[in-house]
């Protein structure tokens, strides 16, 4: 079997911040109501984190769990860890009504790194970064497509759909061009 290939094969662009496509990254969409007892255990078993609060992402090393909607969570992990994570969720949830599905290949992931990373995103997303709370996962749009991002280390991690990876990469690279800093 071939090695899995991310949408842009790790494209990079340097402007006043740097843009990197990372991945492939393991991702699972877990749909389940927040009050289901087995849910925290399932998340713990799959990615080792706690249950994230409203609009939060909990990052633990190379794994994370993000709150996507009142009945949807995003589990992030190394690409090869997905089958085990799915099995762990299935086992822990048992007969509880839920849906866990591998979406690793449906996504593209970017790192936007540098002191002014926010300024690149502020050109694309109608988000008030000064009011973004620590550990907040924001689902919004980047120009004309859906995107989600959160602050992680010296920069942001941004997730979008795989088919528009090139569009989003070009958007980010254009927005990060030298000389176009906002502040």
């Amino acid at each position: 079997m071939s090695e899995p290939m991310s949408a842009l094969n790790g494209a990079v662009s340097d402007g006043f911040v740097s843009i990197r496509e990372i991945g492939p990254l393991g991702m699972v969409t877990l749909r389940c109501k927040a009050d289901v007892k087995a849910l925290p255990k399932a998340i713990k078993a799959a990615v080792g984190t706690g249950l994230p609060a409203l609009r939060r992402v909990v990052v633990e090393g190379d794994r994370a769990c993000g709150w996507m909607s009142p009945d949807e969570y995003l589990l992030v992990m190394p690409y090869k860890a997905v089958p085990d994570a799915l099995a762990a969720v299935a086992k822990t949830m048992g007969k509880e009504h839920h849906l866990a599905v591998d979406v690793s290949d449906a996504r593209a992931v970017f790192r936007i790194e540098g002191a002014k990373a926010e300024e690149v995103l502020a050109k694309l997303s109608p988000v008030d970064f000064a009011r973004l709370e620590p550990g907040e996962l924001r689902r919004t749009r980047a120009a004309q497509v859906a995107a989600a991002f959160w602050k992680e280390g010296e920069g942001y991690t941004l997730v979008c759909f795989r088919s528009v990876a090139r569009y989003v990469f070009d958007l980010l690279a254009t927005s990060a061009k030298l000389g176009s800093e906002l502040y």
Partner: peptide, 11 residues
């Protein structure tokens, strides 16, 4: 009790 997921781009 129904959940949906759009997995168009997964495949």
């Amino acid at each position: 009790q129904v959940y949906t997921a759009n997995v168009t781009e997964q495949y």
